[in-house]
């Protein structure tokens, strides 16, 4: 790994200032960034740790839902969101393994936007709002394809605000070697309709399956998606599963998620 200068600011304002220097990059839990730096796929000149910023940590009820600080670990969300938004807590509790959950954070996960990551499905499926150091971005606008988001250079995610659905569930079909999702589906039923977000399947990363949303908005039952079919054309195909396999898995997991949501 190439060397770098390490700074650990105590406020969002100081972090943003530190990130304005040449070659600076944010470090949150490091569960993605450290392995990436070891492979020399990233070589920041300055690493700005966000783990010392108290205002970016914690889970609390706020207007219209649940607010999760961007530097909150998966383990904390699993524990503290359980009483408010069980499906989100369960998603966080199913990420990786206990040691990954004790360091990895929601902000790092969505900023990274790995096509097989769990949180992007939870954030998009909930229709959450991503709060950054300079604006608020709707989840529908935030995720912009493989490893790409609406974030500008030097802009950091500070919080994610989740509206709380009437019913929701995330079902992950685990890829046991990586512990990521081979494919995962998040379903959320609101008074205004149903949202379905799919990870680990689309070549462009997380996406909403709008046909299933329409069908489930009419009838929120596992069988409601039986008649639908999803094309494998834009699906990921690798040695773990072909595009057609993933397309079928999306449908199966959507049914299971609806059943789990009850």
């Amino acid at each position: 790994m190439h060397n770098f200068d390490f700074v650990k600011p105590a406020s969002i304002a100081d972090a943003v200032k530190a990130l304005s220097s040449d070659g600076a990059q944010a470090l949150s839990g490091g569960q993605t960034l450290l392995p990436t730096m070891k492979q020399r796929l990233a070589a920041p000149a300055v690493l700005v740790s966000l783990t010392g910023i108290a205002e970016m940590k914690g889970v609390c009820r706020g207007d219209g839902g649940l607010h999760v600080g961007a530097a909150t670990t998966h383990a904390t969300v699993a524990k503290e969101a359980a009483a408010h938004y069980p499906a989100l807590a369960a998603l966080a509790g199913g990420i990786g393994d206990p040691a990954v959950r004790n360091r990895g954070t929601i902000g790092g996960s969505i900023a990274n936007n790995d096509p097989a990551a769990c949180y992007p499905a939870g954030v998009l499926g909930s229709g959450a709002t991503v709060v950054t150091s300079k604006r608020k971005i709707a989840a529908d606008d935030f995720f912009q394809g493989l490893f790409s988001t609406a974030l500008d250079e030097g802009e950091i995610v500070t919080e994610v605000r989740f509206p709380i659905p009437e019913k929701a569930a995330y079902v992950k079909f685990q890829q046991p070697a990586s512990r990521f999702a081979l494919t995962g589906v998040f379903v959320a039923k609101f008074g205004t309709g149903v949202r379905v977000a799919v990870t680990g399947a689309g070549q462009g990363g997380v996406f909403r399956w709008t046909e299933a949303e329409a069908a489930l908005s009419r009838s929120f039952a596992p069988g409601a998606v039986d008649g639908l079919s999803l094309s494998g054309d834009d699906m990921i195909s690798d040695l773990h599963g072909s595009a057609a396999y993933r397309a079928n898995l999306v449908k199966v997991l959507t049914g299971r998620a609806v059943a789990a949501a009850g």
Binding site: F6, K8, G30, L34, P35, L47, A99, V100, R103
Partner: peptide
Amino acid sequence: VVHVDGKAIKSCTVFAMDVA
């Protein structure tokens, strides 16, 4: 795996300076 402030973490995936 070691414990940092009571929590199990992978010590190969944390910088020493981050847990000062």
